[in-house]
């Protein structure tokens, strides 16, 4: 069991990183990775929401969709769950924890329709995890996302100081960087699979 959880963590963070190997959540990966500070904020918000959303989707899947034999509706059901959940979290945070809301608030709407969240919820079901594995997998995947984001932000902060041709500046060099970073993470791919 412990070995299994360790394997889940390793695979979710490094070998099957949701951004760098599965290409989910590429939009915030490119959009919110200009400063390390903002990428950390986004990462924390993703950890928070991804864990919640994956657990709730797991519960909905196992206690509503499976008994009623409606497994084929999981995608639409999860979208519904995640969108409402994020909105709910935003409302509750705003009232009960303004400090946390200030830190995470601006990132929450970005996450509402994020494919990384939905992707992890769906992959989690596909892998047939139990509830403990679900929690561990969701947190690990979110940490993997944060790590990818922070690495990217670090590179981009340095890239801004580089004197480069106008042809490469902006989106072009960002995409090239993302590609190379993804390639380098492919090195983990063969080590372990789930």
């Amino acid at each position: 069991m412990e070995l299994n959880l360790a394997a889940i963590i390793f695979v979710a963070i490094l070998a099957n990183n949701i951004v760098l190997n599965q290409f989910l959540g590429v939009c915030p990966y490119l959009g919110v990775s200009k400063r390390i500070e903002t990428s950390l904020g986004m990462g924390m918000a993703v950890v928070f929401v991804m864990t919640l959303a994956t657990i709730v989707s797991w519960v909905i899947f196992n206690f509503i969709l499976i008994p009623l034999d409606l497994v084929y509706l999981r995608t639409i059901a999860f979208i519904l769950v995640i969108a409402s959940l994020v909105q709910l979290v935003e409302i509750v945070l705003k009232k009960n924890n303004p400090t946390l809301f200030k830190a995470l608030g601006i990132y929450l709407p970005l996450i509402t329709t994020n494919c990384a969240i939905l992707g992890v919820a769906l992959l989690n079901i596909q892998m047939g995890h139990n509830i403990i594995q679900t929690v561990v997998y969701a947190i690990a995947a979110a940490i993997g996302f944060t790590m990818a984001l922070v690495i990217m932000a670090g590179i981009r902060e340095r890239l801004e100081l580089v004197n480069m041709s106008g042809l490469l500046q902006g989106a072009a060099v960002t995409l090239v960087t993302a590609g190379i970073l993804s390639l380098s993470f492919m090195g983990f791919a063969g080590i372990m699979t789930l």
Binding site: I60, I64, L65, L68, D69, L70, L73, I76, A77, L80, V81, S84, Q87, L88, I91, V92, K94, K95, N96
Partner: peptide
């Protein structure tokens, strides 16, 4: 069943959000 489940979930979440928006305004 599909209609009722998805529609029901939508209603429940919508209601929940409406209550939350009022309660936590």
């Amino acid at each position: 069943t599909a209609l009722i489940v998805i529609g029901g979930m939508g209603l429940v979440f919508g209601g929940l959000l409406a209550v939350a928006a009022k309660h936590f305004a």
